[in-house]
Amino acid sequence: MDVFIQQVINALTLGGLYALIALGYTMVYGVIQLINFAHGEFFAAGGYIGVLLLGVMGGMGYMETHPWLCLSISLVLTMAYCAFLAMGVERIAYKPLRKQTRLAALISALGMSIFLSNGMMLARGPLDQPYPLQYSSGGFEFGLITINNLQIVIWVLTAVLLVGLNILVFKTRIGMAMRATAQDKVMSSLVAISANKIIALTFAIGAGLAAAAGIMVGLYYGSVRYDMGFVPGIKAFAAAVLGGIGNITGAMIGGFIIGTVEVFGAAYISGEYKDVFAFIILIAVLYFKPTGIMGENIDDTRV
């Protein structure tokens, strides 16, 4: 039983991270129907910039005195960096192809993904970059179950970001504009919503969430690498599709499902095949519900 509860805790952590990445895929897909293959690279860039900023603050001596303040500052700056990166990538590689077939944009996204991950390799080298370990020490113990501080931070951050995103999308005027653009670009531009600005904003928000996930993954696993975006990117994409691509609530649920399946598959069946279980669940769900758990276009939950 203790093992089971411990696995639930791990699954919640991992699922939250997948949900954060999956939201970027699903929001971009909702607005311009593009699988943004470069999204995993935004996530990896977040991991890199996070460790670099923490390093700078460590060099200035603030890490010992105010570690949590340092983490929050670097988190905000990293999210801004990735949002900026994503807006530029959208402008260069996707915007000129908006009128072309979707495959052309897809190939462009693949090329961008290769370009960015190799750019990061050239800038920072092919080796693992270690994260400071001080955040994961300390926590709570209940018998055999341990919850370390970092897991709590991940839960809180994930919850705050997910709730914040929901408020942004469903309660504000900007969110309304985003939903309108997702539903009908022509009509929304007739009521003076600039599709270009909304699309750029969508990319920025998605990349910001991925950047937050990047820092958290770096802290959780202790290191980042230039190609770390690929596998989580595919799994997060699977999570987005599992929930019904284009559907924000679906992406959150999908992220938690993929995280849970992976953790429990690794713990109870076989560690080597943990990715296989996640993909098999994906295929099985899509076989019975071909448009994902939440469906694709339920009324106006699409962004």
Binding site: I92, A93, P96, L97, Q100, A104, A105, I107, S108, L110, G111, M112, S113, I114, F115, L116, N118
Partner: peptide, 10 residues
């Protein structure tokens, strides 16, 4: 190579 892929598509 990645850059060329993007350019070709553009």
């Amino acid at each position: 190579f990645g850059g060329c892929m993007v350019l070709m598509m553009l």
